[in-house]
Design a protein around this nucleic acid. Structure first.
Length: 482
RNA sequence: UCCCGAAUAGCUCAGUUGGUUAGAGCAUCUGACUGUUAAUCAGAGGGUCUCUGGUUCAAGUCCAGAUUCGGGAGCCA
């Protein structure tokens, strides 16, 4: 058997000495012709492998370069040096894979995130990205754990879909037709009946509508999968391909929905703090270092771990849209005309408004409910007893400091007549959505759900500031490497 | 898509009112040293100044366009 190695994380944690081990990993640095800092991705902490003088010939020593992979058998001993408690004194050392130091892009020095983005295939070998992607892994696992513990059914909604009625965003077309010469109808339009699926299809922009079908049978489901938006968005918080978590719960109203979303977010953060404290500490220090280079006024009040603790220990602020607008109108920022966009009941709040509420006014995550119907999707439940001309829906957005909208959700319109009326008003073809309307025709129940952008959650937990740095291989406009 | 900014060595960056042979730190290589922590010390190599066009006796430097990247906005998760 080849793999009898011990993982570096376990070896460093046990602090046991006197026994022989096999370790394998990649060389981070080789100092003094004697000390190898070895990393295997299990932790940011390197294992110091000591190569005593005379153990290796000149030629082998030359092959111990940054990035090279090695297998070492040796004794775990107490370290004489200061940086670590234990180290491995090598008895045999085998180079598994060479790494030409002149060509290997990662140098034993600090690199910019922009540079590493171009070397996305190698950036996992750095401390920052090691921590980020170990955290991403933990958070993904915690997502499943949370819903599993609550008895939700994990439902895989389709990635290729013919449903285009949701209007959540521009879609990527899926076709096998030759794009330079597609079959055409008599009127010149493309004849999709000859396409692979016999109709026009796209990559999904949301699994919600299919998720509702599941909730109408299992009571509570969630999806966790890739989502695609062909928007030409060039920001630090948008991706063309991202992962979204969408729970959908029958017999739940907007209140239950908010409670679940808040509990969910806090659960994920708590899980990360319990299982990845080392990585959080590394990112906390990294962020603190970054902050030092900023002007004092732009520095954040909290460190990363401080921020996470605060979010876990405190309830999210809950306000209605109408209250939010009033807070903005009463704000010094509004009175001093600091906002670029005007504030009035009915507006779709701009990010400057959301940031004011979250970062200046409440200084904590905020859940906003009861948005005007006119600016929200067709499936959101119309609130009863609204003031004349101020029809609202049972929608809720969770706004997080530094990220903005991290969750968007609503109680769904379960009343067939009201839903059909709304769809007609918004020119959504009822015939094509017949399968969706069946949930309201046969045993309709009050239900609710939300969508959480996984990468935005990872951004929040890691303290990274660009969404391209929290997904292994980012897909953004004009960029599809690897 | 819009606004702003940037592009010079492997990386991070200097580069004066346009003027001879474009610099530094780190990395790399060579040598020294050998209980080092991004080791240290000495030396060496390394450049189509993003691309295209223009102005000029002369362009890394000025102008126009393109490309890519970064920050912000919109759209949203």
């Amino acid at each position: 058997m080849f793999n009898t190695r011990v993982k570096i994380k376990e070896l460093l944690a046990s602090e046991q000495t006197g026994h022989e081990v096999t370790v394998m990993g990649w060389i981070r640095t080789f100092r003094n012709n004697q000390f190898i800092a070895l990393n295997d991705g299990s932790t940011n902490n390197n294992l110091q492998v000591v190569v005593e003088l005379g153990l290796l010939d000149e030629a082998t020593l030359k092959r111990l370069t940054t990035g090279a992979s090695i297998k070492v058998i040796g004794e775990v001993v107490a370290s004489l040096g200061k940086g670590q408690k234990v180290e491995v004194k090598a008895k045999t050392l085998e180079v598994l894979g060479d790494s030409d130091a002149e060509k290997y892009p990662l140098q034993p020095k600090k690199h910019s995130l922009e540079f590493l983005r171009e070397k996305a295939h190698l950036r996992f070998r750095t401390n920052t990205f090691g921590s980020v992607f170990r955290l991403r892994n933990s958070l993904a696992f915690a997502v499943h754990k949370f819903f599993n513990e609550k008895g939700f059914v994990y439902l895989n909604t389709p990635i290729i879909t013919s449903s285009d009625a949701e209007g959540a965003g521009e879609m990527f077309r899926v076709t096998t037709l030759p794009f330079d010469n597609p079959p055409r109808n008599e009127d010149g339009s493309v004849n999709y009946t000859e396409d692979f699926f016999g109709k026009s299809t796209n990559l999904t922009v949301s699994g919600q509508l299919e998720g509702e079908l599941g909730a109408m049978a299992f009571s509570e489901i969630y999806t966790f999968g890739p989502t695609f938006r062909a928007e030409n968005s060039n920001t630090t918080r948008h991706l063309a391909e991202f992962w979204m978590i969408e729970p959908e719960m029958a017999f739940n109203d907007i209140e239950d929905n908010m409670n679940l979303a808040e509990e969910f977010i806090q659960y994920l953060i708590r899980y990360a703090m319990e299982h990845n404290m080392e990585d959080l500490e590394f990112l906390d220090a990294r962020l603190a270092d970054e902050e030092k280079s900023k002007p004092v006024a732009e520095r954040s009040e909290f460190g990363l771990i401080e921020k996470l603790k605060f979010v876990v220990d405190n309830q999210f602020e809950r306000i209605t849209y109408t209250e939010a607008i009033q807070i903005l109108l009463d704000s010094p920022a509004y009175k001093k005309k600091k906002f670029k966009y005007d504030v009035a009941w009915g507006i779709d709040m701009q990010s400057e408004h959301e940031r004011y509420l979250v970062e200046k006014h409440f200084k904590k995550p905020v859940i906003v409910t009861g948005y005007p119907a006119a600016i929200k999707a067709f499936y959101m439940r119309l609130n009863d007893n609204c003031e004349e001309g101020k029809q609202t829906v049972a929608a809720m957005d969770i706004l997080a400091p530094g990220i903005g909208e991290i969750v968007g959700g609503s109680q769904r319109e379960e009343r067939l007549d009201k839903l059909e009326k709304r769809m007609n008003e918004m020119h959504i073809p009822l015939e094509e959505m017949s399968w969706y309307l069946d949930t309201r025709r046969f045993g309709s129940v009050p239900h609710a759900g939300f969508g959480l952008g996984f990468e935005r959650m990872v951004l929040f937990v890691t303290g990274m500031t660009n969404i391209r740095d929290v997904i292994p291989f980012a897909r953004t406009p004009k960029n599809c490497e690897f």
